[in-house]
Design a protein around this nucleic acid. Structure first.
Length: 782
DNA sequence: GCTCCTGAAACGCATCATCG
DNA sequence: CGATGATGCGTTTCAGGAGC
């Protein structure tokens, strides 16, 4: 009888898994064959004792082996803390289905998990062992991977528990394991473990920031700013996921609802600004809207005008005007925004047109093109992807995010057989199509081979300007969970440039946007039409081209002048100038010698061809990486109320134009200030004359400088108009005053032209006052 | 003027390399 | 295998450039 039982036993169930009992002698013989006598006494001990690690440790080697087998057959279950630390001992894992299953899955998914190392057998072997160790540890805690394997199954909740308990050393294996389980339908796991937390929604971060602010600055003003940001501005954010909102947004009926929709990014930046202003105003002792409106803001503006950059001041005025509009309407105040925060009509000198070191650009491009460059690790998935993103950007002139978010099927073929690249996410919202050269097609093919296998979601309301879509993409970050971001491209570029030129300061490194600039320069040099360039760069306004062509080659200057003629510059200067009569400095002459190649389609190769021999001459040419467009850095404070011209009427382009304009109404008490401003223009005229003599002196920087004689003419016109009509000075006195001021300017120029040729407005005012020039003061005349 | 996006920098933590 | 220090990825914040 016992024989028949044995046969039956061996035949069907072999040995029960996951039951609360010891092994029988028969079972033991079957699974381990031997030494029953040495461990038989353990079968009399209560099973619960074996879940105690200290008890386990007190056992001898053979006795421990018995416990190991209890674990293998899940007769006992250890707590997570202990189970996840079990050292692996050679147990016949193949006897349990759970392990056979996972071993098979490792074979299947290794290539997916390690795309660039799928052929390395040793790595695969080691990885399999690691996963089996981990699987056994989880098993020891009572969990199997699929139904009917083990006491319970590993689900998403269990993975979270393991993640918390597991040793750091093992966490990355757990992550890989979770990816396998996620992909397998037999496993209840739905979501893999993510190494780093998913980026928090930006709205949550903003909420936290406001909370922190209120804990320190719980003022009426902070409350008002907060209400503006949340009650008024937030409902105007387009594509906002309303589930993410912290509370119901209250709609007040008397608020204008017809404002333009803004993006989430704009909302975030204005929220940021207002929070920083709460702190700023607090330091001025201003903590309520009332204090702000009744002179507070003016006090602050005077201080920040000295300290802050123009951009920052502009933001300050802009955002506060926006808030004030809301505040006035919301409280039915009888106030005009412009009187509280007047808009400044100060003429601003603009700086743009980054000068690229084309010699280094050549090196960088060559490195990126080199399939076996020692500077780039093609076996690193991230570097592999980043290299191709940069090249595609270079070849198409697209923006970095547009390339990072590309879909897998971004290339289409038209009826002529031409290939086109679809950039579905662009800055201006309109999808863009550009020609895909053979190079581009090649890079996209290579990328698609290691592209993420799953759809990748790109959230819209976070830091990275996503497209809000879940789709098959060409690129992704190292985990394939999230999209490649501009930040990662930036890191990549810094990394390889550190390897390329370790001694070069970081601020001279190329950024991803420089690829767009290089592309634009290339097109300009190849005499592409403006429309072609606009199309390629996806610009809708010709003005946007200026930053890309305000660099320094003759061809580029040609474009410069054409755009200039179209009147783009009319806001800055009034006199149209022909750049043809400008002297080229030696660098520019070099550039003019660059030979044109006709092969326009293969952009990269011809670009390299072009710069190869010019490397030495194309180094950084000066210390400034930005070219000042105009050498009058204006400083004269002029407010809107001074100009009573209709706002659509362009009242002039420099202060001098304003001074002679009939619509100009200066403040009576600002006579000295106006004289000081004219004084500055006199200095400028003198400087121009001097420069005309020494000619070649840095013509590049003076491309659009105001000619001396124009200035002198303007001074001649504005002097009588301003002084006679606005400040009621008799015509007889005016020539005397003018001559006096000219003399003063000339003597200043003689003395200080080497050390300080240009004065800011405030310096000029100070100089005139302290230099005993009472005779220019109005009081002196009376 | 108004809006959208890039880029620098700081931080925090995962991962790598190495060793006992 | 685990401890340790170094490296570097990814997140977050902020300033200001780019585009219309």
């Amino acid at each position: 009888m016992s024989d028949s039982v044995k046969v039956e036993y061996n035949h069907s169930i072999t040995c029960d898994v996951g039951v609360d009992r010891h092994f029988t002698k028969l079972e033991w013989k079957d699974i381990c064959s031997g030494a029953w006598g040495k461990i038989e006494h353990l079968t009399k001990v209560d099973l619960n004792r074996f879940t105690d690690v200290t008890f386990y440790k007190s056992l001898n080697k053979l006795e421990k082996r018995y416990v190991n087998y209890l674990l293998l057959y899940q007769r006992i279950v250890w707590p997570w803390e202990d189970a996840l630390k079990i050292k692996f001992f050679t147990l016949p894992l193949e006897k349990v289905n759970n392990f056979i299953w996972i071993a098979e899955k490792v074979d299947i998914y290794f290539g997916v998990l390690f795309q660039l190392e799928s052929n390395i057998e040793s790595k695969k072997k080691q990885f399999k062992i690691d996963i089996l160790i981990l699987a056994f540890r989880i098993w020891a805690a009572g969990y199997g991977f699929i139904r009917n394997e083990g006491r319970k199954q590993v689900g998403d909740d269990v993975l979270e528990i393991i993640k918390k308990v597991i040793d750091k050393h093992w966490s990355r294996r757990l992550i890989k394991l979770s990816i396998i389980l996620e992909k397998e339908k037999e496993s209840p796991v739905k979501k893999r473990i993510i190494a780093r937390g998913v980026p928090k929604p930006k709205i949550e971060l903003e909420n936290n920031q406001w909370k922190i602010l209120f804990s320190k600055y719980d003022s009426e003003l902070a409350k008002s700013f907060h209400d503006f940001i949340y009650d008024y501005l937030l409902p105007h954010v387009k594509d906002l996921d309303m589930k993410a909102l912290p509370q119901k947004v209250s709609q007040t009926s008397n608020i204008r609802t017809s404002i333009k929709l803004i993006t989430f990014a704009t909302w975030v930046s204005e929220s940021n600004l207002l929070r920083s202003y709460v702190k700023l105003f607090y330091s001025f002792g201003i903590n309520s809207p009332a204090e702000l409106i009744t002179g507070g803001i003016e006090k602050v503006i005077i201080i920040i005008n000295r300290k802050w950059s123009r951009k920052k001041i502009k933001n300050f005025r802009y955002v506060l005007r926006k808030w004030l509009t809301y505040y006035i309407e919301n409280n039915n105040l009888n106030l005009v925004v412009n009187t509280v925060i007047p808009s400044v009509m100060r003429r601003q000198s603009r700086e743009f047109g980054k000068i690229l070191n084309l010699g280094n650009a050549y090196t960088l491009i060559e490195t990126l093109l080199d399939e076996q460059s020692p500077y780039i690790n093609e076996n690193d998935l991230l570097e592999f992807r980043c290299r191709r993103v940069c090249l595609i950007q270079l070849a198409t002139g697209s923006r970095v995010t547009a390339v990072c978010l590309l879909f897998k099927d971004c290339i289409t073929t038209d009826h002529n057989g031409d290939k086109w690249l679809h950039l579905h996410k662009t800055k201006n919202g309109k999808p863009q199509v550009v020609r895909a050269t053979a190079d581009v097609q090649n890079w996209i093919n290579q990328s698609s081979k290691v592209a993420p296998k799953e759809k990748v979601y790109s959230p819209k309301n976070n830091n990275y300007y996503g497209d809000g879509l879940t789709d098959y993409r060409l690129f992704a970050n190292t985990t394939d969970i999230a999209t490649l971001t501009s930040n990662l491209i930036g890191n990549f570029l810094v990394k390889i440039q550190k390897r390329l030129w370790p001694d070069t300061p970081l601020n001279e490194y190329f950024t991803s946007h420089d690829f767009r600039r290089m592309h634009a320069i290339y097109m300009v040099m190849n005499k592409k039409s403006k429309h072609e360039i606009q199309d390629q760069l996806g610009h809708s306004s010709p003005n946007s081209l200026i930053p890309y062509i305000a660099t320094s080659t003759p061809e580029i200057q040609q474009y410069y002048s054409e755009i200039y003629k179209e009147g783009v510059w009319s806001n800055v200067l009034n006199k149209q100038e022909e750049p043809t009569d400008l002297e080229l400095d030696p660098l520019l002459e070099q550039a003019s010698k660059v030979v044109q190649t006709e092969n326009k389609e293969q952009f990269i190769s011809s670009l390299i061809e072009k710069f190869k021999d010019e490397e030495a001459e194309f180094g950084f040419t000066n210390d400034a990486s930005f070219m000042p467009i105009n050498n009058v850095s204006a400083g004269f404070p002029r407010f809107t109320h001074n100009c009573v011209a209709h706002e659509m009427l362009n009242c002039g382009h420099t202060e001098l134009h304003c001074f002679k304009c009939n619509y100009y109404k200066p403040d009576d008490d600002k006579y000295n200030e106006h004289i000081a401003e004219i004084f500055r223009f006199m200095l400028l005229a003198l400087r121009g004359e001097e420069m005309a003599k020494s000619k070649r002196d840095s013509i590049q920087k003076e491309l659009v400088s105001i000619r001396s004689h124009d200035i002198i003419e303007l001074i001649d016109e504005s002097f009588p108009k301003l002084l006679e009509k606005k400040f009621s000075i008799t015509p007889r006195e005016i020539p005397k005053l003018k001559k006096g001021l000219w003399d003063k300017a000339k003597s200043y120029w003689k003395k200080h032209k080497q050390t300080k040729p240009i004065l800011t407005f405030e310096e000029a005012l100070h100089y005139l006052k302290v230099g005993n020039l009472e005779w220019v003061g109005k009081e002196a005349l009376q």
